[in-house]
Design a protein around this nucleic acid. Structure first.
Length: 279
DNA sequence: ATGTCGTAGGCGCTACGA
């Protein structure tokens, strides 16, 4: 299976480019974030003509996640248990959930397309929401892998955190001043990994950014951030045979500000290799 | 230059989120 994640920054603005990429790169499963539309507005036809079924979750013009797949999709979910909600000006419990998560089971892999809250600024309620959202995701991961430790579980998407200084090439993103690099956010990311996940791309693609702001020539200057990840449980991570960050997708006509991140999986398992010749 | 995008509301812009 070839699995990709891409924050497309409006699927309606970039559907041709997105489908072209999926076909050209032979993507089986494409997790999208920031589709910026409701399901009834999603441009399904180009995907379906290319052989993909699409499941979309969007509530308004903001956020929104989707999964396109050439393989059968089961158990589609639009939130993980305990996922916090948020509504500006309505602090406190029982806030409505946003369209930031879609889970599905595909070829035995539990895949989540995730759009972690941005945080906006360190003193914004959205920042607290971001940390709470990540803590709930971590608890879901921990409990899931406690119950089913052999599950190939993949959390993919835009995490809106640059986990290390090497992941931050934007001079306006500064520890102590801005989101994405603050110690609490980085701690939350480490806690998510500690729940039983590995960054499956970094070992194969040790450097490189996945996002460059549209403003101030960030891409020509290569002043980006590495904030899009494919995190996998042991069973998933062990199946990864390749990875790529498609930097060229930041070029050309009306690019997203993010690029796709791709992993290749061999899900047949190690047993096949160990099988005796005489079997 | 708060320097670019995308969407909504509703018609040339502003508001909002990122």
């Amino acid at each position: 299976m070839r699995l990709a994640t891409w924050n497309v920054n409006s699927i309606r603005a970039r559907v041709a480019r997105t489908v072209d990429f999926a076909v050209r790169e032979n993507i089986d499963v494409l997790a999208m974030q920031e589709i910026k539309c409701k399901p009834e507005q999603f441009p399904y036809a180009p995907f379906e003509e290319a052989g993909y079924e699409v499941h979309a979750h969007g509530l308004n013009q903001w956020n929104g996640v989707a999964i396109a797949s050439r393989l059968p999709v089961e158990d589609v979910r639009t939130a993980f248990p305990g996922m916090p909600g948020f509504a500006k000006g309505h602090e406190g419990p029982d806030q409505p959930q946003e369209a930031r998560a879609m889970g599905a089971t595909i070829d035995g892999v539990e895949v989540w397309s995730l759009y972690v809250p941005n945080g906006r600024s360190l003193d914004d309620p959205h920042y607290t929401y971001k940390l709470d959202w990540l803590a709930a995701l971590t608890e879901y991961t921990r409990s899931t892998l406690e119950t089913t430790p052999e599950l190939p579980l993949a959390l993919v998407g835009d995490f809106n955190i640059a986990p290390t200084d090497e992941d931050n090439g934007d001079p306006t993103v500064i520890v102590g001043l801005t989101t994405h690099v603050s110690p609490p956010e980085r701690h939350a990311f480490r806690q998510l990994l500690a729940a039983g996940l590995a960054d499956t791309v970094r070992p194969l693609v040790p450097t490189g950014f996945t996002y460059w702001d549209y403003k101030q020539l960030r891409f020509p200057r290569n002043e980006g951030l590495r904030i899009d990840f494919v995190l996998g449980s042991p069973a998933f991570a062990d199946a990864v045979t390749g990875a790529a960050i498609h930097r060229n997708e930041r070029k050309g006509e009306i690019p997203s500000d993010h690029v796709p991140v791709v992993v290749d999986l061999d899900l047949t398992g190690p047993d096949d290799d160990d099988r005796p010749m005489f079997w």
